[in-house]
Design a binder for these strands. Structure first.
Length: 227
DNA sequence: CCAGACGTTGTT
DNA sequence: GTCTGG
DNA sequence: CCAGACGTTGTT
DNA sequence: GTCTGG
């Protein structure tokens, strides 16, 4: 699955080039090594007015939810059932997005029960878009925009670590995924299920500092042993 | 028709 | 064990 | 995802 | 929003 990720690099130009979008001039962010559920993430969204990058809270609250607490648990959505689940299908049809990242974490369970965190990133260190969906929930204080990250079966690189991974889209699939006029579930799911080329990624064990959601420093992504 | 419920993942 | 918060 | 909390009554 | 039950 995907319960933590990073956005450590990426200046304005990187983001604008990677996702072919213009950033609002006032938009600022700091390097994030340990992004956890309930925190703010950057989402590439698209509607009739065009493509934008906007913040979203990670943890999807369905529009009809009476209790927003539900969002603390809806952090991932399975690609295989995305268009069927009542909590997700409306967002899947009309509110797809890309979650901007440059790495993510998976925990490997060892035979003795210990869990070892691994960091996965592109070999070239570049940005990538994880498939996501988003929702808007009306709180008494105003609209709350939330999102979930779509997951798929692990590819060959990740399979030894964990059975699921985020759906990483190749850049040539970004347009089709984001296009709001595209609503054919079968086509969209097949985009998600295209395995991301394992040879473009690398994966190495990291220290347990990432376990603490409160810790957000470079220690999280440092290789435990040279990889 | 209206009222009322409705959630997910991954793990073992 | 289970739930909440980050 | 992981870490950390998790209780009640009655009284002031 | 959408589905189920009455």
């Amino acid at each position: 699955m995907c319960g933590r990720f990073s956005l450590t690099r990426g200046d304005r130009d990187d983001l604008e080039n990677a996702f072919r979008v213009r950033l609002p001039s006032g938009m600022a962010w700091r390097p994030r090594y340990n992004i956890a559920p309930t925190q703010e993430v950057l989402a590439v969204v698209e509607d009739e007015r065009g493509r934008r990058i906007e913040p979203r809270r990670w943890g999807l609250i369905p529009s009809w939810a009476s209790d927003p607490q539900i969002g603390n648990r809806l952090i991932n959505a399975r690609a295989e059932t995305l268009f069927e689940r009542p909590a997700f299908r409306e967002a899947a049809r009309r509110r797809r997005c890309l979650i901007v990242a440059d790495g993510f974490y998976e925990w490997q369970r060892r035979p003795d029960g210990r869990k070892v965190p691994f960091y996965i990133r592109r070999r070239d260190g570049g940005l990538f878009g994880m498939a996501g969906i988003w929702e808007e929930w009306q709180s008494p204080e105003g609209p709350v925009r939330t999102c979930a990250i779509v997951t798929v079966e692990a590819n060959d690189l990740l399979a030894p670590i964990h059975p699921r991974m985020p759906a990483i889209l190749s850049p040539r699939r970004y347009d089709a995924w984001l296009d709001p006029r595209n609503a054919r579930a079968a086509d969209l799911v097949s985009l998600l299920l295209e395995p991301y080329p394992p040879e473009e990624l690398e994966c190495y064990p990291v220290s347990r500092s990432v376990n603490r959601a409160e810790y957000d420093g470079p220690e999280c992504v440092r290789p435990l042993r040279p990889s």
